[in-house]
């Protein structure tokens, strides 16, 4: 039900570490906001487009992922061009597209598991300070992925119950039973996690 948006492959971007990719994305993103010359923005846009379309993503899929973002960008920039200048609008277009395309390429080349590992590693310093438990993030991810299909089944049975009674399926009558049905399992799940000792007290880990 929830497959990652990444695609298998062996390109340079696939082989790079997650931390490296995120650092490049951040640095490039910030750097592009500092320049306004077309001599930098247009090549950046072309390079990002080449990287994005060579990640191994099928062309049609690659385009359809961009559509919602492209739509917003175009509407905004038409308004900007009309109200300020075409120059500013074009500049924003190349900058935004370069960042969006490169971000899309990072997503397409990074497995979700690798991302979760990296997040846990990046949280280690905060863990040592006692601010968050890095292991909790992975546990929470696991719980979400585990329970999405169950909650979707809850939704379907509530919908069937509506149909059986000839009621129209409306958000208002679906939300409350869906939320109550889901959250009332929280105690049982929490007890099951504690009974298995997944979240041991901090002291005992040392």
């Amino acid at each position: 039900m929830l497959n990652g948006l990444n695609i298998e492959g062996t390109t340079l971007l696939h082989r790079m570490t997650v931390r490296m990719k995120l650092a490049i994305l951040l640095v490039c993103g910030l750097a592009l906001y500092a320049v306004s010359s077309f001599f930098v923005l247009v090549p950046a846009f072309i390079i990002a487009a080449v990287i994005y379309f060579t990640t191994g993503l099928a062309f049609r899929e690659a385009v359809s992922r961009l559509k919602p973002i492209l739509f917003t960008i175009l509407i905004l920039l038409i308004a900007t061009a009309y109200l300020t200048s075409i120059h500013t609008a074009a500049e924003s277009f190349f900058r935004l597209m370069a960042i969006v395309l490169f971000a899309g390429a990072v997503t397409a080349t990074t497995a979700t598991g690798a991302f979760i590992d990296e997040i846990t590693r990046l949280l280690q310093p905060l863990d040592r300070l006692g601010l968050v438990r890095a292991a909790d993030v992975g546990l929470a991810f696991g719980l979400v992925l585990r329970f999405v299909p169950d909650i979707f089944n809850h939704y379907q049975s509530i919908r069937e119950a509506h149909r059986a009674r000839g009621l129209k399926v409306r958000p208002l009558t679906i939300l409350a039973p869906l939320i109550i049905l889901t959250l009332k399992d929280a105690d049982t799940i929490a007890m099951a996690i504690d009974a298995r000792g997944f979240r041991r007290p901090r002291e005992r880990l040392r």
């Binding site: 948006l5 994305l25 992922r65 961009l66 917003t72 397409a108 990074t110």
Partner: peptide, 26 residues
């Protein structure tokens, strides 16, 4: 947690959207 899931490239937003491009976009 939702944002982290979007960031790691799970299509958790309505219409199957997700990925860093959504976060970095306008």
């Amino acid at each position: 947690l939702v944002i982290l899931m979007v960031a790691i490239g799970l299509p958790v937003l309505s219409g199957g959207r997700g990925g860093l491009a959504i976060l970095a976009g306008p």
